[in-house]
């Protein structure tokens, strides 16, 4: 964790084609960070503006709590979750992978709040996150172009289809992380055509 924190300070953030990113998605048992748990993590790296499929990672996290009705969303069963690794090991792998990288989430607030809570229990530290949130960036783009945004418009799948990205039917943390990474590239490409490729205005600090 200390390593991670040190690299945050040294991050050199420029354009998407020279900033290393990590796109992450979590599967949760629910939406309440005090009640619910992380049961799966998926991530992939983006280097030189390209997703590195060889860096794909998908981890199941064991949880004492039953997945309950959330199984309907992520299709993970208690028996599968029970075979996962301890949250501590999962976090360690994730933060090693995130070393020197800017985080990319779709709807960062939820996932980051769960990660902070888990880190507080694990490392007794609540780290800061430097984040690109595809949902928020898209929202700001639309606001700037004065496009009205309705409820549900900012779902990952809906935005992806606007950018001509394929539809993924299989839902899991890794596929959603990949889907987020692809959307990040598409959004960056659209910004490029508007001559505003620099990432820094879109960074958010948690």
């Amino acid at each position: 964790m200390r390593d991670y924190l040190e690299t945050c300070a040294a991050l050199d953030i420029g354009r998407i084609d020279n900033t290393p990113l990590i796109a992450v998605d979590l599967e949760l048992t629910g939406l309440d960070k005090n009640e619910d748990h992380i049961i799966a993590m998926g991530w992939t790296h983006i280097d030189r503006g390209r997703i590195q499929l060889g860096s794909n990672q998908h981890l199941l996290i064991s949880s004492a709590q039953s997945v309950g009705s959330s199984a309907a969303i992520h299709e993970l069963m208690d028996s599968e979750v029970a075979q996962g690794q301890a949250i501590e090991d999962g976090l360690e792998a994730l933060f090693r992978a995130a070393w020197g990288r800017v985080w990319v989430f779709h709807h960062a607030g939820l996932d980051v709040s769960f990660l902070k809570k888990a880190c507080a229990n694990w490392a007794r530290v609540v780290p800061g996150f430097i984040v690109l949130d595809t949902m928020r960036i898209e929202y700001q783009q639309r606001k700037r172009r004065e496009v009205p945004v309705k409820h549900g418009d900012l779902q990952l799948g809906r935005i992806r289809s606007l950018y001509g990205l394929p539809r993924y039917t299989a839902h899991n943390a890794l596929n959603d992380a990949l889907a987020t990474a692809e959307l990040m590239l598409a959004i960056a490409a659209s910004m490029e055509s508007e001559a505003s490729l620099a990432l820094s205005p879109h960074l958010k600090f948690f």
Binding site: R50, L53, G54, A181, A189, S190
Partner: peptide, 14 residues
């Protein structure tokens, strides 16, 4: 083979 692939996005005309 899949692990060696890199994904890129190109807007129309690029």
């Amino acid at each position: 083979l899949a692990n060696k692939l890199e994904v890129a996005y190109y807007p129309q005309g690029k």
